[in-house]
């Protein structure tokens, strides 16, 4: 098991995939050079992002800003509420097993999203927002999104959390500041 240092993680935003996908956003830009994105401050974690995208596999994925994370042992985005603190599948909160936990140093752990497995259900986002620092949140991934004229998730979103943003800044990331 590779032990990351806490400093490595705290150095900044480590969103593998989101950064590289930023370029791809331009490909799908709307006529007015905008794309759809979720405002993480407005999202109420209702679960519709997993079910209302026109793609069979949603274009929405959970992302994790490590600089905001508390690196908790008892991570409420990783463990089912009131489960044992052991990483057996039955204790893991993510139904698709998309969250990877790695030891950093006692008593800190890092958590990473495997985007191939994530379906954007927001269950982990809710656990993180309720007890933790809100470092996990949903974003529309522009390497997957069609940038439909009318985003069918935006249409169904009860929190009105999805809006058009400039294609040049296609992600609404939380910051440690």
């Amino acid at each position: 098991m590779t032990a990351l240092t806490r400093r490595d993680l705290l150095r900044g935003v480590a969103l593998v995939g989101v950064g590289s996908a930023a370029g791809a956003a331009a490909v799908h830009a709307h006529g007015d050079d905008t794309v759809w994105q979720i405002d993480p401050e407005l999202c109420g974690q209702c679960g519709r992002c997993a079910t209302h995208c026109v793609h069979p596999e949603s274009a929405v994925k959970a992302v994790h800003v490590h600089a905001l994370c508390g690196h908790c042992d008892l991570c409420t985005a990783f463990f089912e509420p009131d489960s044992k603190l052991d990483t057996g599948a039955e204790n893991q909160l993510c139904p698709t097993g998309a969250i990877r936990r790695r030891f950093i140093e006692d008593p800190y752990f890092s958590y990473e999203i495997d985007e191939q497995l994530c379906i954007g259900c927001a269950k982990c986002v809710k656990g993180c927002a309720m007890f933790g620092n809100g470092s996990m949140f949903l974003q529309i991934r522009h390497d997957r999104c069609n940038n439909c004229n009318a985003c069918s998730i935006a249409d169904a979103c009860p929190a009105h959390a999805i809006r058009r943003v400039p294609a040049s800044t296609p992600y609404l990331l939380k910051s440690a500041h």
Binding site: Q45, C46, G47, C49, A50, T51, L93, P95, C121, M130
Partner: peptide
């Protein structure tokens, strides 16, 4: 959201 209960926090 038409999600299985397993996906509900």
């Amino acid at each position: 959201a038409d999600l299985d209960q397993a996906f509900v926090y």
